[in-house]
Computed example of a mutant assay.
Amino acid sequence: MVEQLRRPEVLLVGGRSGVGKSTVAAALHELLAAAEVRHVVIEGDTLDLAWPAPHLEHPEARLAERNLAAVWANARALGHHRLVFTNSVSVLEAPRLAAAIGDDPIVTAVLLRAADDVVRDRLARRAGGSAPPADVRRSSATARRLDSAVTDHVERVDTDGSAPVEIARRLGLLTGWLG
């Protein structure tokens, strides 16, 4: 049996498509692992990735939150108490995500930001050529929505001109998980 669990600590990493959420989370994972800091990384975008989209067809089901609760419960059973969670709008859904995690987690929310031209280049690399115009428009609209909707408790971090490991180190320091 795992010893008494500590209160969960959650880092929510949000931001527009192409801003670097997954890349920064992977870099933070490497830093935390090198420092032997127990943690779990969950890519929130995959928790309800299906067609037809469950959140549109059955919004009351809250499939992503239910799946987060299940995955996190398994990690908790193994003794984990630190979670890095990436999802574009996670910074807007902190209360619901905290409820899904349970145990009154300590939540740190970070909104990653980047300029349109930087994101366009990143999306083009991801697409293996040029970025689909619809993806760029959607990403820009999401950026505007997030930047105007998040509260002051959300830390805004610009990613332009910074290496993912630099941003990851900043997030590790912000949470207190890296010294």
Rank of each mutant, 00 (worst) to 15 (best):
R138I: 01
R120G: 10
I101L: 15
G102S: 09
R113A: 12
A99I: 09
H58T: 13
R122P: 12
A27M: 00
R16Y: 03
A64V: 08
G129N: 08
R138N: 04
R62K: 14
V107P: 05
G44H: 03
I101P: 10
A98F: 10
N67E: 08
R66T: 14
D121I: 02
E60Y: 10
E30T: 00
S130T: 15
A27L: 00
A94W: 11
S139W: 02
H39I: 07
G14V: 07
D116Y: 04
G129D: 05
A98K: 10
S130D: 14
R113G: 10
L83E: 13
G44K: 04
N87T: 03
A34L: 05
L112R: 02
H81D: 14
R126Q: 14
V10K: 07
S139Y: 02
G128T: 06
G102T: 06
A75S: 11
D117E: 15
L68Q: 06
F85E: 08
H39F: 09
R82V: 11
A73S: 14
P54N: 00
E43M: 07
H39Q: 07
G18S: 09
A99S: 14
L78T: 05
V110P: 08
T108K: 08
V10Y: 08
I42N: 03
A77N: 15
V91D: 02
N74I: 05
L68A: 12
V10T: 11
A61G: 03
H39C: 08
H81L: 05
L111E: 02
T46K: 12
L123D: 11
T23R: 00
P52R: 02
R126G: 04
D45H: 06
R113I: 02
G20L: 01
E30K: 00
S90A: 15
T23L: 00
